[in-house]
C-alpha cells in the first residue's frame, strides 16, 4: 500500500511539474492542483505507520494506546494543507481569469508588460471588479 501511494505521489509530482512548465495559464493551474494533491499524498504517507484498524486511542482498562497505532499527525497536517490549498486555488482561479480578461491572452509568453513597459493604449481602463 505504501509503495502504491508513493508511486502515485511521484507520478502526480511529475505530471504537476510538467504542467507547470507549460505556457498556458489554465495548464499551469492544473499543474498547481496536481502538485497540491501530490504533496497531500506524500504527507499521508509520511507517518511511516499506515496501519489499518488501530486508532490512536486508549482502550478501556489500558493506560496507553496499542503499541502499533495509526499516526494522527499527518492527517491533521493534510486537513490543514487541503484547506489552505483550497483557498489559494480559489484565489489563483480568479486571478488567472482576471489576467485573461485584462491581457486578452492566456499565453504567458505574451505577458511582457512587467519587463517591457506596455504602450499606454494597451493598458485597459481600471475595471471596478478588478480587485478581488
Amino acid at each position: 500500500m505504501t509503495l502504491l501511494l508513493a508511486i502515485t505521489a511521484g507520478g502526480l509530482f511529475a505530471a504537476g511539474l510538467y504542467m507547470m512548465l507549460r505556457r498556458s495559464l489554465v495548464k499551469i493551474l492544473v499543474g498547481l492542483l496536481l502538485l497540491g494533491y501530490a504533496v497531500n499524498l506524500l504527507l499521508f504517507n509520511s507517518g511511516s505507520r499506515l496501519v489499518p484498524g488501530s486508532p490512536p486511542l486508549i482502550r478501556e482498562g489500558e493506560s496507553a494506546p496499542a503499541l502499533i497505532h495509526a499516526d494522527p499527525v499527518p492527517q491533521a497536517l493534510i486537513l490543514t494543507a487541503i484547506v489552505i490549498s483550497f483557498g489559494v486555488t480559489a484565489f489563483a482561479v480568479v486571478l488567472l481569469r482576471q489576467a485573461y480578461q485584462v491581457t486578452g491572452t492566456d499565453d504567458l509568453n505574451e505577458m511582457r508588460c512587467t519587463d517591457i513597459p506596455c504602450p499606454e493604449e494597451d493598458i485597459l481602463p481600471d475595471d471596478p471588479e478588478a480587485a478581488p
Binding site: M20, L25, I28, L32, L35, G36, A38, V39, V88, F91, A92, L95, L96, Q98, A99, V102, T103, L108, M111, R112, C113, T114, P117, C118, D122, I123, L124, D126, D127, A130, A131
Partner: peptide
C-alpha cells in the same frame, strides 16, 4: 487595483510562490 502590469506581475509572483510552498 487590477492594472495590467500588476495582474501580470501577480501571475508570476503567485505561481512561483505557490510552487515554493509546495
Amino acid at each position: 487595483g487590477g492594472e495590467r502590469a500588476q495582474i501580470e506581475g501577480a501571475v508570476k509572483y503567485v505561481i512561483l510562490n505557490l510552487l515554493s510552498s509546495t
